[in-house]
Amino acid sequence: MKGMVLAGLMLPGICCAEIVIQGQVTDKLGEPVSKCDVYFNKSRWISDDSIHARCDSQGRYEARIPAGFYNSMYVCDEEKYAKTALEFWGWNLNLIESQVIDAAFDTLEVFSLSTWSSNGGSNSMFASFRPMSLVTPKFSMKEINGEQAAVIDITPEIDSSSIRGFVDGKPVELLSYNWAYEKLNNCKSFPKEMDTPNGCFMPMVIAQFKKPKLSEGQHLLKVRLVDAKTQNLGEGITHFSSNSAGFGF
């Protein structure tokens, strides 16, 4: 890919400290994957300043990257992507020190994960994401905001046991989850005969977790999504920061 930076090489004009991100990539059974690609995207999803590393036969990778904020990282097998597997995603990552980021990918995807805190109404934290899976897309018209709108649905089967949250590696209790709809930038993937003047949407989930006691500083939320019917999975992570009272993200 044009402009791609290989892991271990510094970007021109960048004087930031170099850190090491390493980890192991596994499948839904916890077994190492035999082949995978890892991308660190500084400014946006896959661009000239993205950094690429490859896994070995045991699913282990190591990347030397400039310390700083990264829009995203993702892990996949490029040959299998969208055929028999999707991707592991990390969003809004503040990679300021060397660390281990293990990942798992399968046929589900936790896309565009973000998190925020309830600062008074409840002792909880929220996460929103778009759940996607390798299923045949279903197109329909739904009433959204009082108007009929076009929806593409590639969600897995989800129940209360499907959404599992972890903060800094420790499980957090799921209190509730609700469905919403994310408006897309365009309707290019929709059938031309569909009526789309009110826009096109995909289902998304808003999950409420019990907020653990948090120390001041940076933390990591992982959401593991498990298909209730097939037990296939997908994972996503994001960083957040809290103040000394456990609030503020």
Rank of each mutant, 00 (worst) to 15 (best):
M4T: 08
A7N: 04
P12A: 15
P12I: 13
C16T: 12
A17D: 13
E18G: 12
I19M: 10
I21R: 03
Q22G: 11
Q22C: 10
D27Y: 07
D37H: 08
D37V: 07
F40M: 09
K42T: 04
S43E: 15
R44F: 14
W45N: 11
D48S: 12
D48G: 08
I51C: 07
H52Q: 10
R54E: 07
R54H: 10
S57V: 09
R60N: 15
R64L: 05
P66S: 11
A67D: 09
A67L: 07
F69P: 07
Y70S: 05
Y70V: 03
V75I: 08
V75K: 00
A82V: 03
T84P: 00
L86W: 03
L86V: 05
F88C: 01
L93W: 00
A103P: 09
F111T: 00
S112F: 05
N119H: 12
M125Y: 06
F126T: 01
M132Q: 11
P137M: 06
S140T: 13
I154Q: 14
T155C: 11
T155K: 08
P156D: 11
P156H: 04
R164W: 00
V167D: 13
K170F: 15
K170I: 02
P171N: 12
P171C: 11
L175M: 12
L175A: 14
K183D: 03
L184S: 04
N186L: 04
S189M: 09
S189R: 11
S189K: 11
P191Y: 00
E193A: 07
M194W: 04
D195N: 14
P197I: 06
C200N: 04
C200T: 01
F201D: 04
M204W: 00
I206Q: 15
A207R: 06
Q208C: 10
F209P: 00
K210H: 02
S215V: 03
E216N: 10
G217D: 02
Q218K: 11
L221F: 04
L221I: 03
K222A: 04
V223W: 00
R224I: 10
R224K: 10
K229T: 13
K229V: 11
T230K: 03
G234Y: 01
E235D: 10
E235K: 05
G236L: 05
H239P: 12
A245Q: 14
G246D: 15
F247H: 10
F249W: 15
F249Y: 14
